[in-house]
Simulated assay, not measured.
Amino acid sequence: MTVVDARQRQRPVLSVGPQRAVNLRPRSVAVLALTSLVGVVAYVWPFLVGDPQAAAGTAHAQDAVVVMALLLPLLVLVTAIELGEGGFDARAVGLLGVLTAAGAALRMAGGGVSGFSPMFFLIVLAGSVLGSGFGFVLGATTMFASAIITGGIGPWLPFQMFGMAWIGAGAGWLPGRGTSAELWVAAAYGAVTGLLYGALLNLWSWPFAAAGAERISYQPGAGLAETLRRYWAFYLATSLGWDLTRAVGTVVMTLVLGPPVLLALRRAAKRAHFVHR
């Protein structure tokens, strides 16, 4: 054994280079793009119809079922493609199950009282280490599993799943992996997405909510500036406090618990041969 080989064997797991643990194949990228397109359409269609407030009593009650019926098979298809083409194997699926269960438990630990959800920091770190595709599927499955456990199943669930899936996917593109700046980058990303998640989730209900509230309700046909002003007022009144708590909590948990979690994720990736030396 050469001196170089000995040094490489002694290299700490936390210093693994910037490569992603699980790389997406082209067909998986296409399916993920299609899945995201379904999510975008689900979010924006109420803004394209004449008067969504006329259906306020059944807001997303019917289309949410359709979105869920499309989302779950697409997630299964991504996993199946990666299994067939070697991107995932049984160990990757096992790790996905473990992290999904851990994320669901963390969401329950947050209690949902203040807006803070410990699940966020795990999704961000896992997506950063294991890649965008893994982060996308993990974000969606974690939200789905936690909703089943807590009884939080409703027309809002597919929109929550898309929001967490996009956060996990975006984490796979974070710079600075394997450097001293990695935790700070992840913490900053967690803070920003903690706010954006709340702003995004508001869109699923805003066109149907606040009917009759002159200053904050959605008004079809209003100009872009007026629509943004009304949405900002709605966001301030309903979500900003919760989202700030989530953002700050994610930063604190990332900086405090991030090093051992990153170490554990990279060890799991190496033992499963996701990252090749």
Results as ranks from 00 to 15, higher is better:
Ala140Asp: 04
Gly139Arg: 13
Leu75Glu: 13
Ser128Phe: 02
Gly131Arg: 04
Met119Asn: 08
Ala186Met: 14
Val185Met: 02
Phe159Leu: 00
Leu95Met: 13
Gly111Ala: 08
Phe144Leu: 15
Phe134Tyr: 14
Leu130Tyr: 10
Ser128His: 14
Ala187Pro: 04
Gly94Gln: 01
Met108Tyr: 11
Leu183Glu: 09
Ile81Trp: 04
Phe134Met: 03
Gly172His: 08
Gly151Cys: 02
Pro155Asn: 00
Ile81Thr: 03
Thr179His: 03
Phe159Met: 04
Gly139Lys: 10
Ser128Cys: 12
Glu82Ser: 08
Phe116Arg: 01
Ala140Val: 09
Ala101Gln: 03
Ser128Glu: 10
Val76Cys: 13
Val93Asp: 05
Gly97Pro: 02
Ala140Gln: 12
Gly151Met: 02
Gly84Val: 07
Met161Lys: 09
Phe88Tyr: 15
Ala140Leu: 04
Phe144Cys: 07
Ala171Pro: 10
Gly168Asp: 11
Pro175His: 10
Val192Tyr: 07
Phe134Ser: 10
Arg91Tyr: 01
Ala109Cys: 07
Ala169Thr: 05
Ile148Phe: 14
Ala165Ile: 10
Met164Ala: 15
Pro118Gly: 12
Leu83Phe: 01
Gly133Asp: 03
Leu130Cys: 09
Trp166Glu: 09
Ser146Leu: 05
Val192Pro: 08
Thr100Asp: 05
Pro158Phe: 00
Ser128Val: 11
Gly176Met: 01
Gly133Glu: 09
Ala80Trp: 11
Trp184Gln: 04
Gly97Asn: 04
